[in-house]
Design a protein around this nucleic acid. Structure first.
Length: 544
RNA sequence: GCGCCCGUAGCUCAACCGGAUAGAGCAACUGCCUUCUAAGCAGUAGGUUUCAGGUUCGAGUCCUGACGGGCGUACCA
């Protein structure tokens, strides 16, 4: 419908304008029902270009507007120059029939059909369990991937990690210390070691597996680190699994060293004259790209900084042929990606294929106080703990319901108490209620007969139908902005319209034709709710 | 110091490239279950969108400055 309105408006515009006008035609759903079902501000945006008052332009547009009366019932000028449209009844009923027919496919669009995309997210190094601090990243990345899938794209979910750095070395040494302690030896955690109880657990399984044969091990022996990495990754995968997140690939930073891509990046940049040696280190001329200082790529110790593998990693992504690569980054990475983009651009890559989404940090509030988390010091609330308390639906919903760009306050106590008050239940309850009615109705009415949907004339029925039709637009909007909360806003609205309808209109006890028509509307609504919840990765329960 | 992000009801947050009367939930108050799930519905109250200017037909949204908060600004990741 949106596209249809844009087309007929464009045609009308071509007729009244002496010269072709290039402009985006914006169709919005007005806030208040009195302003119709759809509206455009086209006449107002054109006032400057055409040098005419907006209302005058609107009049001419309408005079030249050719539309199908089976789709549009009414067009009017309102306010300072808005053009408001009202949908024809026939169109509404036809659409509802379509929704019922499409079922679990309803809402899928083709905007990104044929495109291969990748979302990289979580990407926490395996030094400890996933905490609520990782939660926002994990849920945003997965849901954005789902949204893109619904717009037709083929999407890979990738987890990037590094198991070779100093962090991991300290992790291994921490496990070794705990292992020796279990053997009764005097052993201390290394400087900055990991204090969490999970380290001792890993040491214990090593003891069961190897007995005391590792007593004479050296700190640099990798058996401890490997055991830790395996155990922690198993834990992380399990946590992600509980949240309905399944990665397609875990990408090890180390492979970029093994296949020499790191070296190649440096030599390629050097060829371009963007790299030089100074004080034993290798520098990247970021001043060429407007930065105040150049940046070190390889330290004088010979160890690269994280930027270098980051560049090589993004080259790998682009070389793998993705049309679009989305990075989900916390605000702490905000300063790093411009260097990556600069390097890629300098090497001739099309950086429009890279899309960095930065979300703001979550402030954890515990016992009424801001709570600073540290994996090393084992000051954290894990996602598993949170899910044990409130389940994965509430966990996902909580991280999705707010704009990624604003700070989010996460009060542990509040989340745990959420229980019946949680807004996710508002959506799920609507779904469960419909299921319950449908079951009862199936006993009473013949569900096989085709419903006469034109019997749906109640104010609440009309409002609900129109809300159902907004679903594909809501998905498109959320996926284009990479903002899942926009879909949640929509889901809240449709749930509200359903609950109102439920209150105003009955099924059971009504005459068969009207009951049958309402069941059709319920079916479409339930489909929409179920599909929306599926995109959000939240269950659509049949009973509550 | 400099850069990026944020500031909306008592609290947590919406507001679709700048559009019509800034909306929800929680908390408070008032009604609605002998009838399909009251985890619901209807209503009342709550706002100088942090502040001061500017841009224009129109600003919560864009620009400048101030104030407040977060994050960067490493040969840490």
């Amino acid at each position: 419908m949106k596209a249809y309105l844009q087309t007929i408006l464009k045609n009308a515009l071509d007729k009244i304008s002496p010269e072709p006008v290039e402009t985006d035609i914006i169709i919005e759903k007005p806030r208040t029902p009195e302003h119709g079902d759809a509206a455009t501000n086209l006449a107002m945006t054109l006032a400057g270009v055409l040098r005419m008052p907006p209302r005058k332009i609107a009049e001419q547009l309408i005079a030249n507007l050719e539309y199908d009366s089976n789709k549009i019932k009414d067009v009017e000028i309102a306010g300072p120059g808005f053009i408001n449209f009202r949908y024809a009844d026939n169109w509404i009923f036809d659409q509802l029939g379509e929704v019922i027919k499409l079922g679990s496919e309803y809402g899928k669009t083709t905007g990104n059909a044929g495109k291969k995309m990748q979302v990289e997210f979580v990407s926490a190094n395996p030094t400890g369990p996933l905490t609520v601090g990782h939660g926002r990243n994990a849920v945003l990345g997965d849901t954005i991937a789902r949204l893109l899938e619904w717009t037709g794209a083929e999407v890979d979910r990738e987890y990037y990690f590094n198991n070779a750095g100093r962090q991991m070395r300290v992790l291994g040494e921490s496990v070794r210390a705990r292992y020796l302690q279990l053997l009764g030896e005097e052993a201390e955690l290394p400087e900055g070691g990991y204090e969490g109880a999970y380290i001792a657990d890993i040491a214990e399984t090593l003891l069961e597996k190897h007995g005391d044969s590792l007593r004479d091990s050296k700190p640099e022996d990798t058996v401890f680190k490997q055991a830790a990495e395996e155990a922690i990754f198993a834990d992380i995968r399990n946590t992600l699994d509980r949240m309905n997140i399944r990665m397609n690939q875990f990408f090890n930073e180390n492979s970029l060293y093994e296949d020499k891509s790191i070296e190649k990046v440096v030599s390629r940049l050097r060829e371009k004259g963007l790299v030089y040696d100074k004080d034993g280190a290798v520098w990247f001329k970021t001043t060429e790209f407007g930065k105040e200082k150049d940046t070190v790529l390889i330290k004088s110790t010979g160890e690269p900084t994280y930027r270098l593998p980051d560049i090589a990693y993004h080259i790998s992504k682009l070389d793998r042929g993705y049309d679009l690569c989305i990075d989900i980054f916390g605000a702490d990475h905000i300063a790093t990606y411009p260097d990556v983009v600069s390097a890629l651009k300098a090497l001739g890559y099309d950086t429009s294929r890279i899309d960095v989404q930065v979300y703001q940090f979550v402030t954890i509030v515990k016992d009424g106080q801001p709570f600073k988390m540290s994996t090393r010091k084992a000051n954290f609330v894990t996602l598993d703990e949170l899910m044990n308390e409130v389940g994965s639906d509430v966990t996902r919903f909580f991280f999705l319901m707010r704009t990624p760009g604003t700070h989010l306050e996460f009060d542990i106590a509040e989340a745990k108490e959420a229980g019946e008050k949680n807004p996710v239940f508002y959506l799920q309850y609507a779904h469960a209620r419909i299921h319950s009615i449908m079951q009862k109705a199936a006993e009473e009415y013949d569900m096989k007969t085709a419903p006469d949907l034109s019997l749906l004339t109640h104010e609440s029925e009309i409002a609900l139908m129109k809300q159902v039709f907004q679903f594909p637009d809501a998905i498109t909007l959320a996926s284009e902005h990479r903002e899942p909360h926009r879909l949640i806003t929509y889901m809240n609205e449709i749930s509200g319209h359903f609950h109102k309808f439920y209150h105003d209109c009955r099924i059971m006890g009504e005459d068969a034709p009207i009951a049958r028509a309402r069941i059709g509307l319920l079916q479409a609504t339930q489909t929409t709710l179920a599909n929306g919840l599926r995109i959000l990765g939240i269950s659509a329960p049949e009973h509550m």
